[in-house]
Design a protein around this nucleic acid. Structure first.
Length: 162
DNA sequence: AAGTTAGTCAACCGCTTATCC
DNA sequence: CGGATAAGCGGTTGACTAACT
């Protein structure tokens, strides 16, 4: 693949801001996916290509569903996981709008839950409540949170997720 | 009311694979 | 063909939040 001198560089890490998202969106809409290593040069974003790719694939890419895994999707995940194991990216191909990261995260909590006995019904209830509240908060604009992280993400979601 | 515990998810790390020269 | 580099992937971590004690 590529060429180019690799300089020692301090990349920015941590949560993405809506401004960075915008830059990345513009870059991809212009150049298409791929060539991640040149994103920082072209856009001025001080992010590694790796970080840019991850952000794009998991959150900015058009067509992402973002939200609770549906029962049908869960069935598919269980079935395919039994077939292929932890091949998250392969499984993700069969779930349009879902990312490997999302499926992986889901499976971790899901399988953990399954390992415990079913006496955990109150935990389910709790979780459902949490999700509900979380969603309500994400409808609201960025405000008081540390780094403005979640707020920024919510903003980015509403901006790009169509 | 305060401290602790547990669930969720975004993002990073490190290894592997693909591709270029 | 082999080394260098980019891209892809799976595992893991850390921040945050809410329920529980």
């Amino acid at each position: 693949m590529g060429r180019g001198s690799v300089k020692e560089q301090e990349w920015r890490k941590g949560p993405w801001t809506s401004e960075e998202d915008k830059l990345l969106m513009e870059y991809v809409s212009f150049h298409g996916e791929g060539r991640w290593s040149s994103v920082s040069r072209s856009t001025g974003l001080n992010r590694s290509g790796k970080s840019c790719r991850l952000r794009w694939v998991n959150y900015l890419r058009p067509g992402l569903k973002r939200g609770q895994i549906l029962p049908q999707e869960e069935d598919i995940i269980i079935e395919l996981h039994a077939l292929w194991g932890n091949k998250w990216s392969t499984i993700a191909k069969y779930l349009p709008g879902r990312t490997d990261n999302e499926i992986k995260n889901y499976w971790r909590t899901h399988s953990k839950k399954k390992q415990k006995s079913s006496s955990q019904k109150q935990h389910e209830k709790r979780k459902a409540q949490m999700l509900k509240q979380k969603k309500q908060k994400q409808q609201q604009p960025a405000d008081d949170k540390k780094y403005g992280m979640k707020g920024d993400l919510a903003l980015a979601d509403s901006t790009y997720s169509q």
